[in-house]
């Protein structure tokens, strides 16, 4: 009899978790002030182009070898960066450097960080991003003129 209740409980929990995950997929979260000031892990800082001609926004996608949706995220972000001025997409494989994900507080892949010209975190997206929503959220950062002094 216990088995029946455990079965029902597990399936209900599965339905709730599935619905929650579906709703959270591609959700955009603004970076908190603490997060924005946090020093970037070295492997992330290394992929940034902080030169004057660098992009206004860099999308750093954290992936692992074991991540099926990372491929979809790569396709979405790659195409978006290609047709958007000032937007660059970089994929960072953290399979063998999980400490990078840990420092950034990332628990699942793909998670994409949108970084400003100085490496400041603007926002992050977990799961496969939705291109129009992401573009809308980055609009202000993309159009803002880079300081040239």
């Amino acid at each position: 009899m216990t088995g029946v209740w455990v079965l029902v409980g597990t399936l209900v929990a599965g339905l709730l978790a599935g619905a929650l995950l579906a709703r959270r997929n591609g959700r955009i979260r603004a970076a908190g002030p603490a997060r924005a000031e946090h020093a970037l892990p070295a492997p992330v800082a290394a992929v940034l182009d902080t030169s004057a001609t660098g992009p206004a926004v860099t999308l750093v996608q954290l992936s692992t070898t074991f991540c099926a949706p990372c491929r979809h995220a790569r396709a979405v972000l790659g195409q978006l960066a290609e047709r958007t001025d000032g937007l660059r997409h970089v994929e960072l494989d953290v399979t063998h450097q999980p400490q990078v994900a840990q420092q950034l507080g990332v628990l699942r892949t793909p998670t994409t960080l949108a970084l400003g010209p100085e490496g400041d975190e603007l926002l992050r997206v977990s799961g496969v991003p939705k291109a129009p929503e992401l573009l809308a959220a980055l609009e202000a950062h993309l159009t803002r003129a880079r300081p040239t002094d």
């Binding site: 599965g14 978790a17 599935g18 099926a68 953290v94 840990q102």
Partner: peptide, 22 residues
């Protein structure tokens, strides 16, 4: 195990894949 298999069957969500880092 059932929880993970059910998530995959019903939602196409691979828990083991995404939770690799965790």
């Amino acid at each position: 195990a059932l929880f993970a298999a059910f998530l995959n069957a019903a939602f196409g969500f691979c828990l083991g894949c995404e939770m690799y880092l965790l």
